[in-house]
Design a protein around this nucleic acid. Structure first.
Lengths: 234, 234
DNA sequence: CGCAGCCGTTCGGATTCCGTGAGGAGCCGC
DNA sequence: GCGGCTCCTCACGGAATCCGAACGGCTGCG
């Protein structure tokens, strides 16, 4: 069990490190928002303990960024007791909110409550299909062709597009849904971005772009990501 | 989204009912531990709001009993502020713990945080008939013939037509109703699309298109989808 | 027996939709 | 300012879809 502690107060960090180590957790520390994001992506923590008052990015920004690619439990620790702050953090994607000062017993109990769920539902943030590996946590796509493994470079829009598809495997993804989730709500003009980016994704990911196997079109409706063959045979 | 409120204080129950209804939740109430357990089992709530101080069973006993068969999120509301009570509740299986008095904003935010995760797991209605499987959530139709399972390709109009029929099993679907829901209101001219698309659906889905078993005609009125009894088939 | 009404089916043209290439506008680091 | 990258508009060939029209089979009725 690994916990990422994101806090800029050395004393609190030291106290938390001792407390958490005593309860058997591995501890990783980040002292500002940018470092926290980096650590959340590369260290694969089982839980993020986030202080809202860090320099750099605001706490809500950090939460939103993490939630962009990860479902790791986020426990916010903050000196702010206003309900507005709590609501903002929770609605942005935090799972729990504890105000300072807090009791060690309660904090560890809440950590146990948050990590309990993911312990049973082991989620695999890596998707494989046809020689392509999509690592949602690391924002990274690698492709294996002719025995050589290469990293595929995707633009932000291409990544957002692919991510929406990959998060809905075997499902029809409506044009409208794609527009809302990639370009934000309000972009009702489907004047052809979708076809363009799908074309580029197929060029980068499919073995035969003109005859796609995993990134399919449902004519008149939208697109669909099909991971590949299932072990079950009909 | 249904919430079970387990509390014995009529005033709090009344306040919570109003608050939760205003946020669009269905509310079910239980006034003691035994009733709460019964409601948790039979009402299938999406979240349990549990007061620790109810008569009868203790709060921890209620939590343990629910966790015996269900993973529904449990949010404890209690007047006890001792960390011992919090730790006991959380470690028994509660997911969050709020002390009275609490702010409405914070409570609803915590409810949203707890129900967020399960929101993605929406039910997938699947309809089976005569070797054909219609998965409405995935927008997908598969057909099993001669032991081989193949995906049936449907055009947007064909899919809309089939969806209307499948959503009204064993019921007569009027020609007018079909025209309104497939081609949009205003298309009163029944100059023969219906016969055409029904023909194509039967060709793609029925074992013997000329003698349909599940996609039937009610002469002079409209069409009817009859699932029929499906024996357990491997 | 002839006929009319309804239904299922086939055929083909007009339209829409899809994939893809080329190129300009905006943004960022240097 | 400048080069590189990304995003988006526009245009075109090709394919699929939609829908009008027409034909044959069936049933009930006079």
């Amino acid at each position: 069990m690994k916990i990422l502690v994101a806090d800029d107060d050395p004393q609190i960090v030291a106290a938390l490190r001792i407390l958490l180590r005593a309860h058997g957790y591995d501890v990783v520390v980040a002292r500002d928002g940018a470092t926290a994001l980096d650590a959340a992506a590369h260290e694969h923590p089982d839980l993020v303990l986030l202080d809202l008052g860090m320099p750099g990015l605001s706490g809500v920004q950090v939460i939103r960024a993490i939630r962009g690619w990860s479902t790791v439990p986020i426990l916010v620790v903050s000196g702010r007791t206003e309900s507005y702050d709590k609501v903002a953090a929770l609605d942005t994607g935090a799972d729990d909110y504890v105000t300072k000062p807090f009791l060690a017993d309660e904090l560890t109990a809440r950590i146990r409550a948050l990590t309990r769920r993911n312990a049973s539902g082991t989620e695999e943030p890596v998707v494989l299909f046809g020689g392509v590996e999509v690592d949602l946590a690391r924002h990274r796509v690698t492709r294996t062709a002719d025995g050589a493994e290469t990293v595929v470079r995707l633009t932000p829009t291409e990544w957002a597009f692919l991510e929406v598809l990959v998060r809905n495997p075997d499902r029809l993804v409506t044009r409208q849904y794609l527009l809302d989730h990639v370009w934000g709500p309000g972009h009702a003009s489907d004047s052809g971005y979708l076809r363009l980016y799908m074309s580029q994704l197929r060029k980068k990911l499919e073995a035969t772009p003109s005859d796609p196997v995993h990134l399919l079109t449902d004519p008149g409706l939208g697109y669909r990501f099909v991971p590949g063959r299932e072990p079950a045979v009909g």
